[in-house]
Design a protein around this nucleic acid. Sequence first.
DNA 1: GCCAACGTTGGC
DNA 2: GCCAACGTTGGC
Length: 145
Amino acid sequence: MKSEPQVYSISDLERDKQTIWDGVRNYQARNFLRQIQLGDLAFFYHSNVKPPGIVGLMKVIETDVVDPTQFDFNSQYYDPKSYLQSPRWQTVTVEFVQAFETIISLIKLKQEFSDNELLVVKKGNRLSVMPVATEVAKKILGLVS
DNA sequence: GCCAACGTTGGC
DNA sequence: GCCAACGTTGGC
């Protein structure tokens, strides 16, 4: 799950302990959010910074959360075409688990994984939420220690 | 700052 | 339904 750290960083999550992962406005990314199961772990990825990469780990503590910002007129994520009776955007609530001591940079990820193994290293992939296979996730965690 | 790789919009 | 124009993401 990607976030630009100047908008919301792993440090912010550590401070807040938990957060609703709001603002996703891409249907493919939303569909991935819908597939997330309670208790799933997720990597926190810092995008649009130097260097980009995975900076920590979090845990999903609530699924099928209606993104409140879609109904918030003052939010940049306000969606006038979404209705209270049938919300368009669902997301999850995540809990802080761990901030890695060093970033696992995108460069490192590209060295370790093919774009078939790990979607985030695929050229042109701009989705802010992507699935990671369990075996790949284990290997990534292995890079931390 | 550039630009590739998308996704979205709207005229037809 | 097609597709040109436009907007956005995000690595580089």
